[in-house]
Design a protein around this nucleic acid. Structure first.
Length: 830
RNA sequence: GCCCGGGUGGCGAAAUUGGUAGACGCAAGGGACUUAAAAUCCCUCGGUUGGUAACAACCGUACCGGUUCGACCCCGGUCCCGGGCACCA
């Protein structure tokens, strides 16, 4: 057996052994600090970031996919010559740590730190090229102290306020429940029916930035349209009318009810108003109306999430009072409904049953009037006995306004309301202010103090950070810092004060970690602006589609807040966004309860990291959901062995000749063309399309072509060497360990991570002839070979003389011949 | 309920700007090598029909309809699956 010579010192092993190869390559990266980077104004920077993980215990396939995509892009950009930053850290606060603490009788902090240790080892074994010197965990006071500091700045700017807002309340456990802890309207632990409870909470005024957050979406060209659309709808800017329905006498200090509508054209069709159960007027009327009080109490037996409110059976009760219609002055009955939310708008809505399906159903249920005021423009009639007519149309039964269309009616009715002082045109946003208070322990303490009289004071800088004690025990009901009377106590300027015991929403931490990575060791402030501005914005952000709205909107908002504080110079945090799909098994999301989980660790142990990375990138394009297949993983491993064998066999055939590729014989010319076609396709797929599956398929095709070549001449080996080196370079971002070794075996001193991306030889792509398809009336009837520079007439003529074309045009007249250059000819005949 | 996606062979998928539907891989079947197995290599592989065969025809991208010389792709409607809905992260 011919044993091939690799580099000067050692012989290439015949077989691929990832279990020894991968740790050795990882050791090389570590010894050479290959992924540790600094600001370098002479080089183009590239900041590539994956959404950091919650340290839940061990990596799941979703993580593996997310971090492989990000690592592939990072390594590709590095080969493009960029100064690439790829950091990693831990989204370490959150609810699961408290649940685990109860279950395992450990402190959330200890559980979290031990998970971080284990998961960090897993990330390293997958060969991801992180700059670990920038690692951060959000539960560390070095991190959250700046978040607390920033919050006090926002408070001073008037961007933070406190108001009461509803939470899910378990009456038995006397505790607040997260939405996911409410199962079918009941507490997940004790099964008691959940109630709404209004408690004071802290809010950040994201609505003050609604207009900018919306407008800037148009400039995020490298975000998926899907995500931009979702954010646009979430912000929900609308043009409508705020109007006032006067009451006969004031109730709860209110002389009327304020209502917003986007359909003032239907105003004359209003037949009742509906108030939220917590509306001040509802509460005031309930004081001497026991039936109404009972109804309002029953409305509290309801979880707070919008999905649960939207799907519940709509119920209502007549309050017995009326308000005056702002245009006609006619009395309009006032109802209380369980589906109107006080947290949302004014807590009162007008109902037009003829032209809103939900109002129609409510009116039918309670026998309320349905008055048609819009007719279809087409002149057709509509059957309001069957359903509401919700389209825009022309006004009827609306007095002076009859005959107007939507636009005309909007302006006329809004004008009439404005003239009488009963309404005005306004812009409304669906977006609500960001509630950041959580009644939980494992989060960053909200840095606020209260005087005995209840007035609030932000914690002054010299008392920051407000530390969260880590050595605690958890009972699942009460937060240790709420249960500890000593922790609450503080003294400010000689005055006894009490600390806020709520903690921040964990979206606070994940809203700025990407910026902190640029200067994670900085102790002089939240951000070292010089470093932050070198790296920011993030050039490529990669994460799950489930974060399309909340996390990404809060992070965009935070970036603008940091900009306005002078910390960063850019307007947006993430230039390009890639949202990967989920990892499925047997068509369903992997979950412990379904028993369809696949542990990445077992596969890494069995096949090596490169195989897992290759399969993950090959099985589907990143945005699509990925169906896991153990057989597919075995196939990916087979391909790597085939690649290894190809290089081994090639080296065994002797030294290639000089790379002078002129006047090549046809078989070598074909392989060279394939090499450069593959290079062109993979370059495009990596940089533009981000479809790594098709890039891998292209390299597989190249290797298939290569294996069919049998030419051991010096020139043949040179063409083969070029093909193998190209394949190795193209695969290097995806399977970095095997590529590192093969590159060395093919005689390169420089490590492949520092090799430049190859360049397409345009001359190698030239073809003499091309195949074109010939259709008759859109159906493929023949294929023809034509010179690649053939004139249109020549192509047309040779298409028309094909036997099968003649067969299908016989007896017909050719009406038209369509020629799509280099692709097809369509003969239209009848 | 509302907003956003998706649906293509037995399976994962490809078709990049409206121009050859099924590249690449998995599974399966057949063959070669082997004492045997593994590994590897070669061949077949959407369905139906005709043909010894080369091949040809028809059908086929969830369903119904439309636009177009031409539709997986664009438009209208329906069904199913998934993500999000502000306290899971």
């Amino acid at each position: 057996m011919n044993v091939p010579r690799g580099n000067a010192e050692s012989l290439m092993q015949e077989h691929y052994h990832p279990e020894t190869l991968e740790p050795a390559v990882q050791q090389y990266w570590q010894d050479n600090k290959s992924f540790s980077v600094n600001e370098d104004s002479d080089r183009e920077k590239y900041y590539c970031l994956a959404m950091f993980p919650y340290p839940s215990g061990k990596l799941h396939m979703g993580h593996v996919r997310n971090y492989t995509i990000t690592d592939v892009i990072s390594r590709f950009q590095r080969m493009q010559g960029k100064n690439v930053l790829q950091p990693m850290g831990w989204d370490a606060f959150g609810l699961p740590a408290e649940n685990a603490a109860i279950k395992h009788h450990t402190a959330p902090a200890a559980w979290t730190y031990s998970n971080i240790d284990y998961m960090k080892g897993q990330l390293q074994s997958l060969g991801f090229g992180y700059d670990w010197s920038r690692e951060l965990a959000t539960c560390s006071a070095d991190y959250y102290r700046w978040e607390q500091w920033f919050f006090t700045r926002l408070y001073r700017k008037g961007l933070v306020y406190r108001k009461t807002s509803a939470v899910n309340w378990c009456p038995k456990d006397q505790t607040v429940l997260a939405n996911e802890q409410v199962v079918d309207g009941c507490c997940w632990r004790c099964d008691s029916p959940v109630e709404r409870k209004e408690i004071p909470q802290w809010f950040i005024r994201i609505t003050a930035y609604a207009e900018e957050l919306l407008a800037a979406l148009d400039k995020l060209d490298n975000w998926p349209d899907q995500v931009r659309t979702m954010q646009r709808n979430w912000i929900g800017k609308s043009r409508g009318v705020d109007m006032h329905f006067p009451l006969r006498q004031p109730i709860a200090g209110l002389d009327g009810l304020d209502v917003y509508t986007t359909r003032p054209d239907t105003l004359l069709g209003v037949t009742y108003l509906t108030l939220a159960a917590e509306h001040p007027v509802s509460l005031a009327l309930a004081e001497n109306n026991p039936a109404l009080a009972d109804f309002i109490a029953s409305c509290r037996q309801q979880a707070v999430s919008e999905a649960s409110v939207a799907t519940l059976e709509k119920r209502g009760m007549d309050t017995g009072i009326v308000a005056a219609h702002p245009i006609t002055g006619e009395p309009v009955p006032v109802w209380v409904g369980n589906y109107v939310l006080m947290d949302y708008g004014s807590g009162a809505v007008m109902a037009v049953p003829a032209h809103d399906q939900r109002d129609w159903e409510f009116a039918r249920k309670y026998g309320l009037a349905i008055r048609q005021v819009i007719a279809p423009t087409s002149g057709q009639t509509c059957d309001l006995e069957r359903e509401a007519f919700v389209d825009k149309g022309v006004l009827v039964h609306s007095g002076d306004f009859d005959g107007l269309d939507f636009e005309g009616a909007f302006d006329a009715i809004a004008g009439r309301l404005a003239d009488s002082g009963r309404g005005r045109v306004t812009t409304n946003f669906r977006l609500r202010d960001w509630g950041v208070s959580r009644q939980r322990y494992w989060g960053a303490p909200i840095p606020m103090l209260y005087r005995p009289d209840g007035t609030e004071i932000p914690v002054p800088d010299h008392k920051l950070p407000v530390l969260l004690p880590e050595d605690v025990s958890i009972d699942g009901v009460h937060s240790p810092i709420k249960a500890d009377p000593l922790w609450r106590r503080d003294v400010l300027d000689g005055e006894a004060v009490e600390r806020e015991t709520d903690t921040f929403d964990t979206f606070m931490e994940s809203s700025w970690y990407y910026a902190r990575f640029t200067c994670a060791d900085y102790t002089g402030g939240m951000l070292d602006s010089a470093r932050a501005n070198y790296w920011l914005p993030v050039d490529q952000y990669v994460g799950g589609i489930e974060h399309a709205i909340l996390h990404l909107l809060y992070a965009r908002f935070f970036h603008k807040l940091m900009r306005d504080e002078g910390l960063v110079a850019s307007d947006e945090p993430f230039t390009r966004l890639l949202c990967q799909g989920m990892v499925l098994k047997d068509g369903a999301k992997m979950s412990k309860s379904k028993g369809n989980t696949v542990d990445p660790q077992g596969l890494i142990d069995q096949y090596g990291a490169d195989t897992v990375r290759l399969f993950t990138m090959f099985a589907a394009p990143p945005e699509q959901s990925l169906e896991w297949s153990d057989e597919g993983v075995a196939g990916a491993n087979r391909f790597l062995r085939k690649l290894w064998r190809a290089v081994f066999a090639h080296l065994g055939r002797g030294e290639p000749g000089a790379a002078r590729f002129v006047d090549l014989p046809e078989n070598l010319r074909n392989l060279r063309r394939k090499t450069h076609e593959t290079l062109a396709k993979v370059s495009h797929d990596f940089s533009q399309r981000q479809t790594f599956n098709t890039a891998i398929a292209a390299v597989m095709e190249l290797l298939n072509d290569l294996s069919r070549l049998d030419d051991s001449s010096a020139l043949g080996l040179a063409v083969e060497r070029e093909a193998l080196e190209t394949a190795t370079l193209l695969l290097a971002p995806i399977v970095p360990h095997i590529s590192h070794r093969l590159w060395r075996e093919m005689g390169h001193e420089e490590a492949i991570i520092d090799a430049p991306w190859p360049v397409v030889d345009q001359g190698a792509l030239v073809r003499d002839t091309i195949e074109m398809v010939v259709q008759v009336n859109g159906k493929v009837r023949a294929r023809i070979q034509v010179a690649s520079n053939a004139e249109r007439q020549t192509v047309e003529a040779s298409a028309l003389e094909e036997q099968n074309v003649l067969r299908f045009t016989e007896g017909l007249t050719v009406r038209k011949v369509i020629v799509v250059p280099n692709k097809l000819v369509n003969v239209v005949a009848s």
